[in-house]
Design a protein around this nucleic acid. Structure first.
Lengths: 208, 208
DNA sequence: TGTACATCAGTGAACGCGCGTTCACTGATGTAC
DNA sequence: TGTACATCAGTGAACGCGCGTTCACTGATGTAC
């Protein structure tokens, strides 16, 4: 499949992406379980029936959005954790990375935070699976660290869950602070940094 | 107001509670933003218009549910944190308390987890306010501990946020594991215990 | 290159349905005397 | 205690509206020769 897409395929992909983008925008102010198929097509400017050429239902579209949103998070998480010892400098950099990701993809972050425990089961499942993969990746990263010597696999998993959850919480707080005063964002950053530092200290003395 | 409610008031309260209960049950499988007023009244067995005698809208009902759900959580959180040093025994007891609360009030816990980042703004706000009060209560509890000597208010707040978020995450994991094998619940308990222990260690060495 | 046929993304009319909200109402409960 | 009037939680009909889904369609794009 090295040749360019045909005109027809290219146009289809474009419409599909427009549906995803419109849905994501509409989801800033509501949950997926109340998102209407006609709302989405109206926003894009196509007939309601065109929706079915791309998705079976809004739940199906939601699952596609999970891939899109967490695909864009993937590289960030690895970078954030890589060599994430308790060094203050590294923690600061990690928090900055989270903040810049939220600034770059606020709608994606909001979507994941909202639907992680939302009312649409297949979407919750897709998010759970993706986050599970993140946890494993973080564990693999942590295992590489010399400080992980003597740690059981259970211990490494416990810590990577803690890190992944902490990142999501921090991302969600940055999101809330996006339209607020810069001092509020700074406060979120400071608190998240302290929490990461405390976790780092606990990590350092875990085997004492 | 020491006398018993009149028959009329008592009946009204009963209907109101029936609406809240029915809504909570319906919210196990959907989000508040897609919950219909007619759904709720149908489940209770009253006319749709009766709804307006109690709530302006489903969002208004949602705010009432927040009070109900987090009111029932209040005593638990204080008990969980009181004297929450890193002693393993106390951590184990705290995790057991969370598990038993989730078992006793699964629908309330699910509602809060779902709507904390959900699509209905006034409900998100109500949850944020209640959780903010929890954070302050936990901070006050922590400040009493002798180990908190030398801690700044910022540090205490940072830690109480960490504890409150950790409790919510753990509650949500217990919820997911409710209908699963007992081993899965046990695994959630073990992991949460280790995480609390790690946080406790970090807390202990914070001022080193 | 040109022609004849196949594919299929998007259309537009039509459907039955449940929604939120209004309104005037009823009849049990509450209150004043 | 009894009577006459006020209150108000719950009713039921009616409304206009947007929903998801079906269906036969169109016309640009793709393919075979």
């Amino acid at each position: 499949m090295s040749h360019t897409l045909g005109i027809r395929q290219a146009q289809k992909q474009k419409t599909r992406q427009a549906l995803l983008d419109a849905a994501l925008a509409l989801l800033e102010e509501q949950s997926l379980s109340s998102l209407g198929l006609r709302e989405v097509t109206r926003a894009v400017g196509v007939a309601p029936t065109a929706f079915y050429r791309h998705f079976r239902s809004t739940a199906d579209l939601g699952v596609a959005l999970v891939e899109e949103a967490l695909g864009s998070l993937h590289p960030m998480i690895r970078r954030t954790v890589a060599g994430a010892e308790s060094s203050d400098e590294r923690i600061t950099r990690a928090v900055e990375l989270i903040e810049s990701h939220v600034t770059a993809y606020p709608a994606h972050v909001r979507f994941i935070a909202r639907e992680r425990h939302g009312g649409v089961q297949p979407v919750r499942k897709a998010i759970r699976e993706q986050l599970g993969r993140f946890v494993e990746e973080v564990r693999d990263e942590l295992a590489k660290d010399p400080g992980a010597k003597g740690w059981s696999d259970e211990d490494l998993l416990m810590l990577s869950h803690l890190y992944v959850d902490q990142m999501l919480i921090t991302a969600s707080l940055f999101l809330e602070a996006l339209e607020a005063e810069p001092e509020e964002r700074e406060q979120v950053a400071l608190r998240a940094t302290r929490q990461m530092r405390l976790i780092g200290i606990g990590r350092h003395h875990w085997l004492d």
